[in-house]
Design a protein around this nucleic acid. Structure first.
Lengths: 137, 137
DNA sequence: TCTTGACCTCAAGTGAACTTGAAGTAGCAA
DNA sequence: TTGCTACTTCAAGTTCACTTGAGGTCAAGA
């Protein structure tokens, strides 16, 4: 199996070497060996880094993602857990969609005050419902 | 205009008083006066807090959100800026949707290794493209 | 009037996710 | 063999978003 030098992986993935070392320290990724002093990585680590970057976007902490990946860099979790996380993503996607709609509405609605616009208020209702009950990062 | 005591706003919004004070310190929200020592808030602050909570979910920093709101608690930004942020949200929504699809796929796909499954690899391509070029929080 | 409780200020502490700096080292090209 | 460069370790520093703690204050109810 072809191994990647840490510098090469950093260039390919856009993740700085210091961060790769940090991720390894906390057990999020693994290096396969050294060339001299330099860490060498398996190719699937690149896939894993891509998933980690998305996971961060989705609000997973690094601790949450530790242990989520198998040897091939793909998620290795029980089915139910995967579906549960997918469901949480669905909720987040819904929220973001409404925030987007609200922003676009505010941009385009000619009403002088949005608080009097029924469409805006409808978009805002869910926000008031969800605010605070949301998991924080 | 009816004013809310900080405790009441905290109960309604789910945002602790310490956080409300902190938000005021950094200029993210405004209180309208005091009842004795206690901060009093305008009702629209509740809407604003809901939007802040969603904004955090969307990856905006508190500093970015400072100054985004007008007196009525609704976003007060130039049209182009609002559309730009909506566009960024669209991109984020697309990414999260694909992450969700990838998770569901991994949960349900019977292939012994996902690296050999064309559907998974297709889902992963975008991730490799986007990783690293993404704004960090 | 006195007590209670929820607020007040200000400074310091916390946890997550990294980054930076100092001092050292290994491989490769000249 | 000598440099150069990109890595190495380890500890400490940084930023963000809060929270906590100590010591103080005010309004309302008993």
């Amino acid at each position: 199996m072809k191994l990647l030098d840490i510098g090469e992986l950093a260039r390919q993935s856009g993740v700085p070497p210091s961060t790769l070392r940090y991720y390894e320290d906390i057990g999020l990724i693994r290096s396969e060996g050294r060339h001299g002093l330099r860490r060498q990585y398996d190719a699937p680590v690149a896939t894993q880094l891509a998933l980690i970057s998305l996971g961060k976007l989705a609000g997973f902490s690094l601790a949450e993602m530790r242990g989520m990946f198998g040897a091939d860099g793909t998620p290795q979790l029980p089915r139910t857990e995967l579906h549960l996380r997918a469901d949480r993503l669905d909720a987040q996607i819904r929220d973001l969609t409404r925030l987007r709609d609200a922003l676009r509405h505010v941009a385009d609605c000619p009403a002088e005050t949005h608080m009097d616009c029924p469409k805006f208020m409808r978009l805002m209702q869910f926000a008031t419902r969800t605010a605070g009950s949301r998991r924080q990062r």
